[in-house]
Write a protein that binds this DNA or RNA. Structure first.
Length: 422
RNA sequence: GGAGAGAUGGCCGAGUGGUCGAAGGCGCGCCCCUGCUAAGGGCGUAAGGGUGAAAACCCUUCGAGGGUUCGAAUCCCUCUCUCUCCGCCA
């Protein structure tokens, strides 16, 4: 959510920034709505103030043994008028809130211009794609003999699910363990175990709701709950309604969770293999920082995600997403793309974003700024560190042998009982 | 699932219809005293929103939502969460 004060004081500036995303802010509609809100609120406040005065006068008159009936009568009339004014206020406030919740975040100045992914800028590249002396298979063909079973998954759950068996399941587990150990032991993140089912409020906090409900799986029952689309939701919401002291910052959290996505808008896309599933595992990094530190934190968090790929010796590149491709709540995003020999191209395996105060305002997550003594919104960041399912894909394709076996990357061998090949 | 207790400011905790946004304490800030330290004293210290150039003024908020009333932290109803006991259970 944007700072509503900024929106009022610099409406044109906000509109110019959002225009970079291709989002056109309806200035006239905003001004009309805000002016209306202002009038309604002033009127309601005025009536309430008068009502309070009358009610207080009743008490004072009674205390002095005087006749309060004049004040009683006035209070009655004011209360009735107030009822109408308050109903109007609630309506206009709901309208304003929904409108504000639907606005994307401002972009950071360093975000490159552009309308879609074709304008994303490669900022660095690591490693060299391996040269094969045979035609490399893609992970689906390669994986089936090793224990990747889409047929079984289809019988159990339908399309876009997978079953892993035997050493493939173990390799998948090893990847998650390796990433968690790296981030907790070497990068200083606290490991978090968090709920996989969350409330609509938590999802509003991180920005998935109200706009992106169709991406989510909702479960039925007495209360509406949603399966998490990413650990970002429960983990970032750890600071909801909190005021964090300056000494506790930065907070760095890591969680390994399944993620559930309906992929409603992706019909026909990546239908083959593990790339796009309704359920996948991800190790997620979250940082909660002082506003002044958030861009340094974004670089650091991105480097932490990159370190996973370096240790696995997987070639990758880092992209700075352009204005049109940066997500709804983010001010700046780096994508990590790993080389997939089976597809002959780089594919997204991590996305690291600074949300500045966008989520913090929605969550009421604040810190006490020692300079002002006031609670102020925190900055939140998150990034995949990294997607486990896609990491499995990358390992299979990059480490494959001509006979259909796959070497275990050295970094993972301790997690595979020393096994060198599957 | 059954029975009971509770939810108040950064934290603890008092407050059962009328200057209560809320005693007291802790914490924090400024000042005083004490030649260091420890202790002591004084003052201040919630958040959100609105109007305004500013000073300032106004409104809201005592778990959430409704109700009663001229007036609700306080009375009534519903819900959520927490705790205790019983039952069930990975």
């Amino acid at each position: 959510m944007l700072d509503s004060k900024l929106l009022r004081s610099d409406t044109e500036g906000v509109a110019r920034n959002l225009a970079r995303r291709g989002y056109s802010l309806d200035l006239a509609a905003f001004r009309t709505l805000d002016e209306h809100r202002k009038q309604v609120q002033i009127e309601a406040d005025r009536l309430r103030a008068e009502r309070n005065v009358a009610a207080k006068a009743v008490g004072m008159a009674k205390g002095k043994g005087e006749d309060p009936s004049e004040f009683l009568k006035r209070g009655e009339a004011l209360t009735e008028a107030l009822e109408h004014a308050e109903a109007a206020l609630v309506k206009v406030q709901l309208e304003s809130d929904e409108w504000l919740m639907g606005l994307p975040n401002l972009l950071h100045d360093s975000v490159p211009e552009g309308r879609d992914e074709s304008s994303n800028v490669e900022v660095r590249r690591y490693g060299t794609p391996r040269v094969f002396n045979f035609t490399p298979l893609d992970h689906a063909d390669l994986g089936v003999p090793l224990g990747l079973d889409f047929d079984a998954a289809a019988r159990i759950s339908g399309a876009r699910f997978s079953v892993l068996r035997g050493s493939l399941a173990r390799l998948h587990r090893a990847l998650g363990q390796f990433m968690l150990d790296l981030h907790t032991i070497e990068h200083g993140y606290q490991e978090i175990y968090a709920p996989y089912l969350v409330s609509a409020e938590a999802l509003r906090g991180t920005g998935q709701l109200p706009k992106f409900e169709q991406e989510l799986f909702a479960v039925g029952g007495d209360r509406p709950l949603y399966l998490i689309p990413t650990a970002e939701v429960p983990v970032t919401n750890l600071v909801r309604d909190q005021i964090i002291s300056a000494e506790q910052l930065p907070l760095r959290y890591v969680a390994h969770t399944p993620c559930f996505r309906s992929e409603a808008g992706a019909a026909g896309k990546d239908t083959r293999g593990l790339i796009r599933q309704h359920q996948f595992d991800k190790v997620e990094l979250v940082q909660i920082v002082k506003p002044a530190d958030s861009y340094a934190a974004l670089e650091q968090l991105t480097a932490h995600a990159e370190e996973v790929l370096k240790r696995l010796e997987l070639p990758y590149r880092v992209l700075a997403l352009c204005a049109g491709d940066v997500g709804f709540g983010s001010t700046k995003t780096y994508d990590l793309e790993v080389w997939l020999p089976g597809q002959g191209k780089y594919r997204e395996i991590s996305s690291c974003s600074n949300y500045e105060a966008f989520q913090a305002r929605r969550m009421q997550a604040r810190w006490r700024n020692p300079e002002t003594g006031k609670p102020e919104p925190l900055h939140t960041l998150n990034g995949s560190g990294i997607a486990v399912g896609r990491a499995l894909v990358a390992v299979l394709e990059n480490y494959q042998n001509a006979d259909g076996s796959v070497n275990v990357p050295p970094a993972l061998r301790p997690y595979m009982g020393g096994l060198e090949k599957i």
